[in-house]
Amino acid sequence: MQHLYKQIYADPEFHELEDKRGRFSWCLASIVLLTYFSFILIIAFAPQVFATPVFENSIITWGIPVGLFVILLSFVLTGIYVYRANREFDRLTKDIIEHAKKIHNEK
């Protein structure tokens, strides 16, 4: 197994995949982190923003739709990630492993 690991680590395609996957996951993660911590920071420093009604005379305040949006966003982003990872990334990973095994067996 160790040989195979080394083999794959030396494969530029592996690093290309990792760059792509890494960028994708960190990008999604930053969206979640930014949204969530903006939410928390507003609560901490400017709670009155969330206390404003969504439109005049409405009892519903901005905090509620924003909160629901954060919940929905989390769900949608996990869906997007799983969709791409289960199709594109898994296929590329499989190719890389097979390629490495082939070279390994030829040696």
């Binding site: 999604l28 993660a29 909160g67 954060v70 989390s74 996990t78």
Partner: peptide, 18 residues
Amino acid sequence: GLIYSIGFLVGWPIILFL
């Protein structure tokens, strides 16, 4: 109460991505 709920939930995408 919603602050707690959201905090509990947003950990999940992070777990998945990272």
